[in-house]
Design a protein around this nucleic acid. Structure first.
Lengths: 121, 121
DNA sequence: GTGGGAATGAAAATCATTTTCATTTCTGCT
DNA sequence: AGCAGAAATGAAAATGATTTTCATTCCCAC
């Protein structure tokens, strides 16, 4: 069940740790690697569920995957160039926990993203 | 060029100021309004470029539109039954603003969701 | 009224993503 | 070796949101 194809992971690294499935596929094609689009999608999903990569959405809705360290963090993403800054989310953690408790939820997780236009754009 | 169809806007309001194009369309159908899906999409785009609505992305990539200036809130969603509670996000707003400023971002927005298992499940 | 631009919507096109399914490759086992 | 079954692969078809095309209808100034 190890579908986390290492060639896909390597390509994602080569791409600067930030690319869509289609881009990873095209990159591999251009570099002469023989792989199917389906396999790329499957590998990315597997990497995702293994928490080796992270997924975000571009403005047009395309999913982009990126390598991700294991420390829990959030992202500040530029809507224009896609540049990403990893930020601390201590305030969020506390907020999520408080709110969840207030309404009696358990096994709580959360997502949070900030997006805007970066200083370069 | 005023394609910001008022019926679409009204429906978006009725939906709680938060819905996808498909949902707006279905809601209008169910309520017996005669409108085409194309028109709904066009109206939403128009409302968007007039800055009357805002667009976000759901996890699955579907675009959801929301009235700007609507009091902004977040969701606490049960992973098991899908039940949703709307919650205040004052802490988040501040956090997002602070972080964005720190890194020189402008035109800042954010998304945040908390998910878990509710008390009934 | 009438001519032309704007609005409408059905149907087709597009595009990312997922599913299906037949084929190939790997694995452990004898 | 040889073989069975599991897992991986990828081409092609299916899906689902969104966009485009295009013919028709509506509306408004003249």
């Amino acid at each position: 069940m190890s579908r986390s194809n290492p060639r896909v992971l390597a390509t994602l690294e080569r791409a600067g740790g930030f690319a869509s499935a289609q881009e990873v596929y095209q990159l591999m094609q251009r570099e002469g690697e023989s792989i199917g689009l389906t396999t790329v999608y499957r590998a990315l999903q597997s990497l995702l569920s293994d928490k080796i990569v992270d997924v975000l959405r571009r403005d047009d809705g395309e999913a982009i995957y990126r390598l991700c360290g294991d420390t829990h963090h959030h992202h500040l993403v530029c809507k224009s160039c896609g540049d990403t800054v990893e930020i601390e989310g201590g305030a969020i953690e506390k907020w999520a926990k408080t709110m969840a408790e207030e309404f009696g939820f358990r096994e709580v997780g959360h997502t949070a993203e900030i997006f805007g236009i970066c200083s370069k754009c």
